[in-house]
Every structure is written in structure tokens, then in C-alpha cells.
Nucleic acid binder design. Structure first.
Lengths: 143, 143
DNA sequence: ATGCGTGCAAAGGCTTTGCATCGTC
DNA sequence: GACGATGCAAAGCCTTTGCACGCAT
């Protein structure tokens, strides 16, 4: 995504376009998997952008509130990870060896939500599905 | 589950049967949904069992290590929840209104894991599926 | 008797917040 | 110029840990 698009995005949501905010969104847009606040912080340092970790958190909070970013609690890591909200329904495949996260785009439970809705009388608004396992290189090292 | 069974369970795993440990297991066995360490702590106080919160955590850790208990990170709550390990594959339906957790026993993604295994060359060892929505009573109050 | 279990207090890690200052609109 | 954004430091929350004491086997 280009810089003007990001600015446009922020404007639409009523958020100011600061260099910090844009850089955070830019980093997230370029990642195809969720990352922790600290990783964003470190990437910004690499990019020679001076920022405070609490500012990262505050921006992530606002961006999540405006639905530009999604905040996730995946197992296997005890902190939150964040990703750019592509408005695509996604699942994750997490390697228990190296903690690498892969995004999966297809969803096997379309019909399941409806089934549960009728069974429980809940209104289902979403779901979270993560797969756990070992990636090819961790499989080699373990066996 | 009866007290002797719990003791037997602990013994088999090489764990001493202290009154604390047995009470924690007993509480978890009786719950049909996962709860936080603090809730266990509070229930024990109600039962007039004096215990320190860190002891609760330490016991949960050992019990999870021995696979008698499962430690879960569900979204919507920023702390861990624990449940007795019934050796049943389970999913959860979490009410976004009142945070109530319902356990679901059927699993819609049996074949999906295999599909992903062949697609990604990962070795899949498990998955986590949670549904989110609003329970009947929260539906009423919101609408 | 030995080693695991416990209480207490303190530390740890991630995240949030208060306050004064700075930057964007 | 107004109000949101930021840095810094401190606090908050959940969880873990060190150490001395107590209890189950």
C-alpha cells in the first residue's frame, strides 16, 4: 500500500497522520503475519525512527479501535500480536518449534457457525481458528 | 469425580496429594468451562481453604505439565484460563457480552488438518477453535 | 528423613496511564 | 490556537521466583 493510501485511510477514520502512525501501519501492511508491539518498535528503530514503546501501544490501540488493525491473542506466546486488517477472514498456522506464524486464507467452518447458532440460540459474530504444529525445518531438527 | 479417584490420578502422575492440590482439581472437575487462577483462589476461600495465589499458580503449572489440566489463552480476556483435561477435544463459544464460556464438543475440522498438512508440509499436532458471539440473554439486553 | 509443597514478599514481563510538551489540522 | 499525539516515568495487572518453613511419603 502506498503512503497516500495510508494517509487517506487514517483521514477517513478521523485520525491524524503522524509519521509514527504511518510507519506503524506501513510495517504492518508489509507483514503477512501478526507481530508483537515490541517487534514494531524494533523495526522502527532500524528505520531510524525514534519512538517510545508506549506510543507504539497507544497507536495500536487506536488503530485497533478504528478497525485498521487487529489485536490477537495467540497461544504459545504470552503477549498480544497485531496485524493489518485486510478485511479478510484468516486463520493461522503456528510452528511450535520456531514460533513462526503462517497465515491461512481458507476457512473450513462456514457452515459450522450456522449450525451452532441454531443449536445454542447464540448470535455468532465470528470465530478464531489456529493450527499448531511443526514447520518443515523444525521437523528436520527434531527428528 | 470422587476424592479417591483424584488421589489416584495424582499418584499415577507422581504428584503428592495435598489438600490444596485436591481442592483445585475438584473445583476444575466440577466446572464445565475454563476459569482463571483467581477464580479458583476465590472459590477456595469460599470453601474456607486458606491458600496463597502463588500456590494456585504453582499447582496449575504442575497439573498442566502432567496433562491433568489444560491452560488456555482465549481472546476477550487477557489472562489464562484453566480447565480439567477430560481428554476430549473441545471448542469454546464465548459470549462477548457477559464473557460466559460454553464448551462445544463437536469438531468441524477433522479433514482440514490433513489438507493443510499436505499443502504446507507442516506436521500439524493440534488446533484451537473458538467462536464468539452473544448469548440469548445478552442478545435481549442489547437489542 | 528427604524432597516436594507452601506462604510471603519481591521481581518480572507486557501493557497502560499521568502529566507536561510537541505537532498536526 | 485547539486538541490530539508523544516521551518519559511510574504504575498496574497477571504471573513467576527466591527463600525459609512445613508437610506428605
Amino acid at each position: 500500500m502506498k503512503k497516500p493510501d495510508i494517509q487517506e485511510n487514517l483521514k477517513k477514520k478521523g485520525l491524524k497522520s503522524t509519521k509514527h502512525r504511518m510507519a506503524i501501519l506501513d510495517i504492518l501492511v508489509k507483514k503477512d503475519h501478526p507481530i508483537a508491539a515490541e517487534q514494531i518498535f524494533l523495526e522502527m528503530q532500524k528505520m531510524a525512527i525514534s519512538i517510545n514503546l508506549s506510543t507504539v501501544y497507544r497507536n495500536l490501540e487506536v488503530l485497533a479501535e478504528k478497525n485498521l488493525v487487529t489485536k490477537l491473542a495467540l497461544s504459545g506466546d504470552d503477549r498480544y500480536v497485531y496485524e493489518y486488517n485486510r478485511m479478510i477472514h484468516r486463520h493461522y498456522l503456528i510452528c511450535l518449534g520456531c514460533k513462526k506464524i503462517l497465515a491461512l486464507e481458507d476457512c473450513p467452518i462456514k457452515g459450522y457457525e450456522q449450525q451452532i447458532e441454531s443449536e445454542t440460540d447464540y448470535q455468532i459474530v465470528g470465530h478464531k481458528l489456529d493450527l499448531y504444529g511443526y514447520c518443515p525445518s523444525c521437523r528436520k531438527n527434531n527428528s
